[in-house]
Amino acid sequence: MATFKDFRNNVKPNWCPGCGDFSIQAAIQRAAASVGLEPENLAVISGIGCSGRISGYINAYGLHGIHGRALPIAQGVKLANRELTVIASGGDGDGFAIGMGHTVHAIRRNLDITYIVMDNQIYGLTKGQTSPRSAEGFKTKSTPEGSIETTLSPLEIALSAGATFVAQSFSSDLKQLTSLIEQAMAHKGFSLINVFSPCVTFNKVNTYDWFKENIVNLNEFPDYDPSNRIAAMTKIMETGGMLTGLIYQNKERKSYEDMIVGFKEEALAHQSLDISRESFDKLVAEFK
């Protein structure tokens, strides 16, 4: 059985010391080991950004693609080989700006993949511009007078798009984060985990301390029922989106792969490419 060390490789991350992304990497490695995965059965598909480098820092199959497209690539991987555990990952710009269209539709489609957003409320790699997750009034290189657009609420959007698993966490809370990733991998369908991951270099407002002060852990509400979609939406709004934990899960809905008529359990990638003469003749006969 693989341990979390088996998910490490010898590539040194080029993240700034203190960047929240380190813990997210560690949480993925721990969760993968604890659910009993072998490295060759995990595929991490990432976008472009500081965060997007994550697929190169985990010993597993991985593809570091183009900005905003981690999700469609990940869905292609899953359709081709549903025996793999597929994680898609990237920044808040990657998933909620350039890739927002894909995010909403991946949620609707509900393929069995886990999407981890490394949310630092800013663009890190391009050195500090505003993100859809930036607060109104937030001053960045591209918003010197403060952002005048509203802040996007991915959790509300996910719920209204029909998400079957919505969670949020904080990179400092390695225990909660690891547990949520484990649950997401076990969930049969699309899981969104938005993770607050401070950018220590460019975001001087949403710091570790700021998050610690503002976060509300769902643990504090023992009666909270994550199967209740209305309650989930209410709680997100009540907390201004600052809650962490498993916010919503629908265990009833089948995953996309399970709903495709005639789609086998066996990976498509392992099936034969040939067609029989008989099937071929049948196809051709339609045009005679």
Partner: peptide, 17 residues
């Protein structure tokens, strides 16, 4: 964009797409 990147992902994972 989703169509072509999905095809890239599926080809990467071994299915002619």
């Amino acid at each position: 964009i989703a169509a072509v990147t999905m095809a890239i992902g599926a080809n990467y994972a071994g299915v002619r797409t």
